[in-house]
Write a protein that binds this DNA or RNA. Structure first.
Lengths: 174, 174
DNA sequence: CCTTTTTAATTCACCAGTGAAATATGAGCC
DNA sequence: GGCTCATATTTCACTGGTGAATTAAAAAGG
């Protein structure tokens, strides 16, 4: 029963039962929203599962990848918070974890002494080069059977959803 | 910068830079996977934000809704774990929270004394009837501009993704 | 200049969720 | 009937994350 397929089936049934008593419920939107939440969190579990052998969690991995792919291999906690959508508090913890493993170094900024620069180390680069390719097989399997067109559609729809969510955020809440 | 649109833009750039150095990276799949994670977690934040005034979090809300929409208004912790994809430990906490607010009652099962029945109370039903409709406006806004066809496509693609994730789970891990 | 305001990072106290162990009951099997 | 194994729930210790307060430094504005 832990299968996503079963959960989705149960969800469909539940929303249908709900709509009988509550016709003004926007049933198909409710189902899409539940679907997004279910599939999204399952993908996150999948990612964390494959990261576990490397003793990284999602946010630590993301932070490390951003440093790896940034032009000069460094950034500041504040910037990383923006890029990763993490709070400053958690970025401090992430920094501690990555620095503790020698994948990243912290250094006080000279221009602005409030700032801290976090830079990926050579050891951190080697670590990424080694572990990243091992994620590819599962990543590919995730989109098995998605043709060129399916991928384009999914990308389009998710970006559209993102636009709507941004608009919701701007509005004075409720 | 906290906007999803900006985060997605940065992500696209990052993956593109990555692909230059690492041509074997499945770039479009990586982007889709990041997109799903970003949009999914933002939708979760959006939901939790609108639930906050009712002092419910996502998993408590989901549990309460399942009880509300179940034919006899009751279930057991074990079943609820399956339906909500929550661990048993957390379901105990959820039960404590909902029982503590009088929305749900716990009772020992007579047939199987290991089991516990959790049932929604009349007060719990009234609570749901009052709060649920207030979620509809934001839910609808989330899918503004999604026509009949977009909704069908998104549903299809998410269910397909779910199938692949289930297949990944079954396989002997890596 | 020097005070006020803003910004950056960290610390602290807390909330939500997990895995492993404990507890208790039921089921299967000589 | 009594022993072993399986199942349901709870407890406990821990991880990952958040908001509010703290510290420190820069910027703004007389």
């Amino acid at each position: 029963m832990a299968s996503l397929g079963n959960c989705i089936f149960m969800m469909d049934e539940g929303v249908d039962r709900l709509t009988e008593a509550l016709p003004e419920l926007p049933a198909d939107k409710a189902k899409l929203s539940r679907l997004m939440l279910m599939v999204g969190s399952r993908m996150q579990e999948e990612l964390e599962h494959t990261l576990k052998p490397y003793r990284l969690n999602h946010s630590e991995f993301l932070t490390l990848m951003i440093l790896y792919s940034s032009p000069d291999g460094s950034s500041t906690p504040g910037e990383l918070c923006d890029y990763t959508s993490q709070g400053a508090t958690n970025m401090t913890r992430i920094g501690n974890a990555l620095v503790g493993r020698g994948l990243v170094v912290r250094a006080a900024s000279e221009q602005d002494r409030r700032r801290v620069r976090m830079g990926i180390t050579p050891s951190g680069r080697r670590f990424v080069q080694k572990m990243l390719p091992t994620l590819f097989p599962r990543l590919s399997a995730m989109f098995d059977g998605f043709g060129e067109n399916d991928r384009r559609q999914l990308g389009r729809l998710l970006r559209k959803l993102a636009d709507n969510l941004d608009r919701l955020d701007e509005e004075i809440d409720r």
